[in-house]
Design a protein around this nucleic acid. Structure first.
Length: 659
DNA sequence: TTAGGGTTAG
């Protein structure tokens, strides 16, 4: 059989034929020798289009090059797919060559060609060239407008994208023109994407009103982007309302909602949407779903579920997806299994800056600064440029382990060698590092020299360090700043009060107590999570709601007897000083992490690691108690608090009591 | 020819 006529490629049969050909034998020479008339431009166009469609942009460009070598004259259909292939590869050189050819053959003004060129220049970061082309267009259609609007979003200027949209609306309402241009749902999606980037509720609301007026409300893609825009503005209530009320949903709607919940720490809600997807069975989950679910697992410390998702990733052959791979590393690190994270990391074929940073941060949060820095060196050797967050992770790792010299080195080097100006987060890490290592004056000096206004994290780090090193003077300075910045945060008053108590300044302690009482400042309730038999159990401080409460209480009693035998003395310094000693001990005894640890030991197989996650910092009494418990019951206990990981084994903690 | 969802810190 010989397919020789130019029209044959335009009918569905030959399109199927081409797809089959490329899936089994992507050899253009054989294809032409056997089936196709090499001198027919339409045949070449079909081949370029099919290659571009199937994602083989390199071959598509080779086909275009072959066509030119044969001195064939490309027509207007040749260019859009050729230019699109350049965009997909971010290949500006080939893109410019294709542009040149389009000019030579007189197709630059063609709307299909010019829109593809605007898109290509935008994707390759040459926004100026894109805008020049757009400005010079004799006429514009909705595609050229949308391409230009999207170009601004892709290049980080969502505000300009919105301005252009306003211009578009003016042209749309200009009745004097012969050819009217109407906004369509694709343009609407682009505009909403700009709203997501701007993250201003007011703007999203205006665009929402506009799209209702223009009848785009029922469009699935528009609704998906709208819920994302509201979520990015921080309005999760409206986002979930839109999701709940959607007459139809697709995988993108569900993935968006899962990701929104997961990114905002609402792991249970994220999992509920996922389970809903599984139950309905209308569409299969994909790499995006699993990546978002892994984030939910990371937040809630759901290791068992995380492992199941990892198995699923392997089954679906998604291991080489860099998003999924990075999420797996992050999940294992945040679920306490940094070794498993490392194994997954080493298996990754493609690693980007986020994958490397996840591993650097992962080691850091487990107090393993040496390994963290080693990964950071490897990253540089591999030619991956660290970013702002990488340096936060490096400095945080140094801070967790007390690596003062290394921290200073990278803090100075990040600007000098990597051209990244230290931001407020880097200062926060440095103040923490210096302060906890005892260099309080240096930490204060660093704050005084900051170009940006120090925030709660920075002053909070200094106050925390003052508590450890009992420095009342600097503690008062930092608390004054903190009371101004965040007057309703109870934690700072408690810290200062404890600092006074350590110094024996009981009048000041009393003054703080009265102040907190008068201002009705209540410490946020501590809670701990523990996973057992595939379920995550939540314990609040003094929680009597759990069905096994009595058994837990009895078990804790027995543990206390044994702990006291090996020298445990309750450390009541972190309890507010408005209760008597006995009551303080009772308060400590029902701290959520102790309840969760006891429950974990009772409900997991002996020999396995008990893992607890706490929303606040673990208190010093619990830290000492859990260390002893690990020895008494001969179990490894891992506690993730709001700051870092503690691995307790044989009566000792991996943090070396430096936390 | 144009559009929507995912990964790293504190």
């Amino acid at each position: 059989m010989r397919i020789s006529t130019s029209t044959s490629f335009l009918n569905p049969i030959s399109s199927i034929f081409l797809k089959q050909w490329f899936s089994t034998n992507p050899n253009l020479t054989t294809l032409f020798n056997k089936y196709v008339d090499k001198t027919d431009v339409s045949s070449w166009n079909s081949i370029i289009a099919e290659l571009a469609r199937s994602g083989d942009s390199i071959e598509a460009l080779r086909a275009f090059s072959s066509l030119r070598k044969l001195s064939l004259r490309p027509d207007r259909s040749t260019f859009p797919c050729t230019i699109k292939s350049c965009s997909s590869l971010f290949d500006l050189t080939s893109g410019k060559q294709a542009h040149q050819q389009a000019i030579v053959f007189g197709f630059e003004p063609d709307l299909f060609v010019s829109s593809a060129l605007i898109d290509m220049y935008s994707k390759c970061g040459e926004l100026g060239n894109a805008r020049k082309l757009f400005n010079e267009l004799p006429q514009r259609n909705v595609v050229s407008w949308t391409s230009m609007i999207t170009g601004y979003i892709q290049n980080g200027d969502a505000h300009e994208a919105l301005s252009l949209f306003k211009e578009f609306l003016m042209e749309e309402s200009d009745g004097g023109r012969e050819t009217k241009v109407f906004i369509d749902s694709i343009a609407m999606v682009s505009v909403l994407s700009a709203c997501s980037h701007i993250s201003e509720n007011r703007i999203t609301k205006v665009v929402h009103g506009f799209l209702i007026k223009r009848g785009f409300e029922g469009d699935l893609c528009v609704a998906n982007t709208l819920l994302d825009a509201y979520a990015k503005c921080g309005d999760l209530t409206i986002a979930s309302k839109i999701f709940d009320e959607m007459p139809e949903r697709d995988i993108v709607s569900c993935n968006s909602m899962i990701a929104i919940y997961a990114q905002n720490g609402l792991s249970t809600e994220a999992l509920n949407v996922f389970y809903g997807m599984l139950k309905d069975g209308d569409y299969n989950y994909d790499a995006v779903t699993l990546s978002a679910i892994l984030l939910a697992c990371a937040h809630s410390g759901a290791l068992q579920l995380g492992k199941c998702i990892h198995d699923q990733v392997i089954k679906m052959r998604l291991e080489d997806n860099v998003f999924v791979g990075t999420s797996i590393i992050d999940m294992y690190c945040k679920c306490g299994r940094v070794g498993m994270a490392r194994r997954a990391f080493d298996r990754m074929k493609e690693k980007n800056v986020k994958s490397w940073t996840a591993m650097v941060a992962g080691y850091g949060m487990h107090g393993r600064a040496k390994e963290s820095l080693e990964v950071f060196y490897e990253m540089q050797k591999a030619g991956v440029k660290p970013n702002y967050i990488t340096f936060v992770s490096v400095l945080a790792a140094c801070s967790h382990a007390g690596f003062v010299e290394e921290g200073w080195h990278w803090f100075k080097t990040m600007n000098q060698e990597f051209n990244i100006e230290p931001g407020i987060e880097h200062y926060g890490c440095m103040v923490d590092l210096l302060g906890r290592a005892g260099y309080l004056d240096e930490a204060y000096e660093l704050i005084e020299g900051m170009k940006v206004k120090p925030d709660c994290v920075v002053w909070g780090a200094l106050l925390g360090a003052c508590r450890i090193h009992k420095n009342v003077k600097l503690g008062e300075i930092s608390s004054r700043k903190l009371f101004e910045l965040d007057p309703n945060n109870c934690g700072y008053y408690v810290l200062l009060s404890n600092l006074y108590a350590d110094a024996g300044r009981w009048e000041d302690v009393e003054r703080m107590r009265i102040f907190m009482k008068n201002h009705r400042l209540i410490k946020p309730p501590g809670f701990s999570l523990v996973e057992a038999k595939g379920r995550v159990h939540v314990f609040l401080v003094g929680d009597k709601e759990h069905p096994q409460y009595e058994a837990i209480d009895e078990y804790l009693d027995r543990l206390y007897v044994k702990m006291k035998e090996v020298g445990y003395v309750p450390d009541t310094t972190s309890v507010l000083h408005d209760v008597d000693q006995e009551e303080k001990q009772t308060v400590l005894r029902v701290h959520s992490e102790k309840l969760a640890v006891a429950f974990g030991i009772m409900n997991t197989i002996h020999g396995t690691t008990v893992q607890v996650i706490k929303n606040l910092r673990v208190c010093s009494d619990c830290h000492a108690a859990i260390a002893l418990i690990s020895k008494i019951v001969n179990r490894e206990i891992v506690v993730r608090d709001s700051y870092r990981f503690h691995h307790f084994k044989d009566g000792l903690c991996s943090c070396g009591d430096y936390w």
